[in-house]
């Protein structure tokens, strides 16, 4: 068990290292650097040379990678290209805001998705299932900016209930984002509910058709006890991984939605950084998002391992 945990952690760490290499190499490979971006037209001759020396860009890529990666481990991503602000400070606020949005969407979406997934799975091919499953396909596939736009049209333009755009800047306290945050939460939870619902549904169907559920029924266990005690623990285990992917997606900045609602989270920061060609910020954000992704998935894998008696003992035996 411990060996397996360790193995997963080591693999996760390897992935993170590869990610950091990819990001660094990717940005290196792009034409131009921080100096050409900063100096724009004047980027030539002595001025360019001086800037590069100032920023340390004249050293080998190898040295710079270790400096960057070393800083990142300590939570120091250096300065943004403009040279005015520390990236770490910028990111903290944005990350907090993205986390707020993610937490709200998860709080709405996950319970709803599991409930509806179980319902559609148990009443497979009945009207409830057909309606919910079709809505799920719609919710999952309609582009976020489309549903966001439609919601703004309805609730902000026609009904005038909720403002369609967030006006508070990134570093404002959480309370400043209400009630504007409601619409983005609705859009996000719609998409994620649809994904998780479909997963839970097919998992419930599969488990309800399994031998042990049939056996429980033939042992005289009442239907709802069969569902809750025998079927759901197995049926909901795979949901952990899907939820993890959703969390990673939410924390990684839901670019389009943040732009639509002008929400100051990671996604908007990403777009702004790209528009400004602020490569150090792009690098930092990408790394944070990627590490979050790896971390969340790792957590889910470990959680699944802990909750599934089969995996748990299998690996204990292996030891």
């Amino acid at each position: 068990m411990l060996t397996l945990l360790l193995r997963r952690l080591v693999l996760g760490a390897i992935t993170v290292v590869i990610v950091s290499l990819l990001i660094f190499a990717g940005v290196e490979a792009l034409p131009g650097d921080a100096c050409t971006a900063f100096l724009e037209r004047e980027a030539q001759g002595a001025l360019l040379e001086k800037c590069r020396v100032d920023l340390g860009l004249d050293r080998s890529a190898f040295t710079r990678y270790f400096e960057w990666a070393g800083g990142a481990v300590r939570g120091d991503f250096g300065m943004s290209a403009g040279g005015t602000e520390r990236i770490a400070t910028l990111v903290t606020d944005r990350l907090k805001n993205s986390a707020l949005l993610a937490a709200c969407a998860l709080a709405v979406g996950v319970p709803l998705a599991i409930l509806l997934g179980v319902i559609t799975g148990l009443w497979r091919d009945r009207p409830v299932d057909l309606i919910l499953s079709t809505s799920a396909i719609l919710a999952m596939t309609i582009p976020e900016f489309v549903s966001a736009t439609v919601l703004i049209l309805i609730f902000s333009v026609w009904l005038r209930w909720i403002p369609g755009i967030v006006v508070a800047p990134a570093d404002y306290p959480i309370s400043a984002f209400f009630p504007e945050i409601i619409l983005p939460i609705i859009v996000l939870s719609m998409v994620m509910t649809a994904h998780i619902l479909r997963m839970v549904r097919s998992s419930v169907i599969e488990v309800m058709a399994s031998d042990f559920v049939q056996m429980a029924t033939l042992k005289g266990v009442p239907y709802w006890q069969v569902v809750f005690r025998h079927a759901l623990p197995s049926a909901l285990l795979p949901a952990i991984n899907v939820v993890a992917l959703t969390v990673a997606w939410l924390l990684g900045g839901v670019v389009v939605i943040e732009v639509v609602f002008n929400y100051p989270g990671m996604g908007r920061m990403m777009i702004d950084a790209i528009s400004d060609r602020d490569l150090p910020v792009v690098q930092a954000i990408t790394l944070i998002v990627a590490v979050t992704y790896v971390g969340v998935n790792l957590t889910a894998d470990i959680l699944t391992m802990l909750l599934n008696p089969r995996l748990r003992t299998y690996h204990m035996r292996r030891r």
């Binding site: 399994s210 042990f212 049939q214 623990p233 197995s234």
Partner: peptide, 8 residues
């Protein structure tokens, strides 16, 4: 083997 509930 498959008729006993695996999680209980």
């Amino acid at each position: 083997g498959q008729s006993l509930t695996p999680t209980i």
